[in-house]
Design a protein around this nucleic acid. Structure first.
Length: 167
DNA sequence: GCCAACGTTGGC
DNA sequence: GCCAACGTTGGC
């Protein structure tokens, strides 16, 4: 729940569907979003997200890059345990449990779009709405989504307002 | 598979 | 602190 003066924010999380898709999240219902190893994305995860914020789930590096569903931030920041695991691809020997470098959030499934909103379609918007995804060369895997862009995506995905507003 | 864009690393 | 080299991302 959020007050008018402190509205929920919107985020976009990229995932390669061959690795972890919206259907995987739907099946598991909740997932620790681990493996983020970029400082800007880390700062969003650790410092800026709040439980209850909505997440646009985006499929990248695939035949049809697109926003494919909705999720919700479902925890405070937690140290990403993969950074301490020498067997993990995400192991970071320079990090320590006393001063973790990488953080994650639990993400809860909300909805799988019946109509994905493709990157191609978003690029045809008459205005990029200051959406970082549409900026040239963008590589962030965790990014804020301006409210106007989030509304546009949800509308184009065929959702009505009462299907996504938190209650 | 190509390659533009960007982040990180490390020598100096 | 600069910056060239290198690695990664991700659309195409």
């Amino acid at each position: 729940m959020s007050s008018d003066s402190n509205p929920a924010r919107y985020w976009l999380l990229k995932s390669e569907p061959d690795v972890f898709s919206i259907d995987d999240l739907k099946r598991k219902q909740r997932e620790g979003w681990d493996g983020v190893r970029n400082y800007q994305a880390r700062n969003s995860l650790r410092d800026e997200m709040r439980p209850g914020d909505l997440v646009i789930f985006y499929h990248s590096s695939c035949a049809q890059p697109a926003a494919v569903g909705l999720a919700r931030v479902d925890s405070e920041a937690q140290p990403d345990p993969t950074q301490f695991d020498p067997a993990s691809d995400y192991h970071d020997p320079k990090s320590s449990p006393e001063d973790p470098r990488w953080w994650l959030r639990q993400i809860a499934y909300v909805h799988r779009f019946e109509q994905p909103v493709t990157l191609q379609a978003m690029k045809q918007w008459e205005d990029d709405l200051d959406f970082p995804l549409l900026r040239r060369g963008n590589r962030l895997s965790v990014m804020p989504v301006p409210a106007a862009a989030a509304r546009r995506i949800l509308r184009d995905a065929g959702l009505k307002p009462d299907q996504w507003m938190s209650s």
